[in-house]
Design a protein around this nucleic acid. Structure first.
Length: 255
DNA sequence: GAATATGTTTAAAT
DNA sequence: CATTTAAACATATT
């Protein structure tokens, strides 16, 4: 499941490949998670040019003509840019640009397509100001990790990066949001910016043309297959429901 | 082959 | 209303 940095790189690369290309045809293979039916998608989008592709929260957005197409990859969604007539598994939505076809695929059929997604006031993780972030945390008395993951509070952070950000800032995932001292909140905000931006840089470097999937090679603590960090700290794993947290003992718990 | 893990959103429950 | 829990998804991996 790609997260914010993966999506940011993907958006840039897809834009590079498809900007100013005209959408020739559109097929909605599975409409269960689509906001409108195939005909409506076709009527509003086909025949128009891709103006831009960008990331919004955990969504990818395609600006096509005067309309916006939002794609949410959910857990296992993938984008595949293939040659015409090339087969892909589990297609959800197919966008034809002449000889190139862009597919949204998902074996779990959860990836969602939205036409002209509603504007939201929820700040994006890379856009929120330090002050605003502090005010948000002051209002929350749940685990800091829950707040970071709550898309209604702040958009774009998933399970893996939440662990990485907390590790970087030295805060335990079990800390209660509104008990974290102001200077530590500041540090957390800084970690959030640097961890996400560094990840974007590293993915860009490692996979300059990446259009799909994810890259977690550089993660420091969210490591299901390892029990120690590079520094030799023991990685603690615990579960909340089916969601696992990875952290080390030195991460401070504020309660 | 049969359990199991997987992570996000949404709906339901507390 | 805020917060927590569970269901859904269907495959790859163990």
């Amino acid at each position: 499941m790609p997260e914010l940095p993966d999506l940011a790189v993907m958006a840039k690369n897809i834009e590079k490949r498809l900007k100013d290309h005209t959408l020739k045809a559109l097929t909605l293979h599975i409409d269960r998670k689509a906001s409108v039916d195939e005909k409506t998608f076709q009527k509003t989008l086909v025949g128009h040019k891709v103006k831009s592709v960008y990331r919004e929260g955990k969504e990818l957005r395609f600006e096509i003509g005067k309309e916006i197409l939002g794609l949410h990859l959910m857990l296992h969604g993938e984008l595949k840019l293939v040659k015409k007539d090339e087969e892909v598994k589990f297609p959800i939505l197919q966008l034809d640009f002449g000889k190139d076809h862009l597919y949204l695929t998902d074996w779990q059929k959860q990836a969602a397509s939205t036409l002209n997604p509603e504007k939201t006031t929820v700040p994006d993780a890379l856009e929120i100001k330090g002050k605003e972030f502090g005010e948000l945390l002051n209002k929350k008395k749940s685990d800091i990790k829950t707040v970071l993951l709550d898309q209604k509070s702040i958009r774009g952070i998933g399970n893996a990066y939440a662990d990485e950000i907390l590790y970087d800032s030295g805060i335990s995932p079990h800390s209660i949001a509104n008990t974290i001292p102001a200077d530590i909140v500041k540090k957390l905000w800084l970690s959030m910016q640097t961890v996400l931006k560094d990840a974007i840089d590293q993915i860009t470097k490692a996979d300059p043309d990446r259009l799909t999937g994810e890259n977690r090679d550089f993660m420091k603590v969210h490591l299901p297959k390892t029990d120690r960090t590079e520094k030799g700290e023991a990685i603690i794993v615990d579960k909340k429901g089916s969601r696992k947290s990875y952290y080390v003992e030195s991460q401070e718990v504020y309660k």
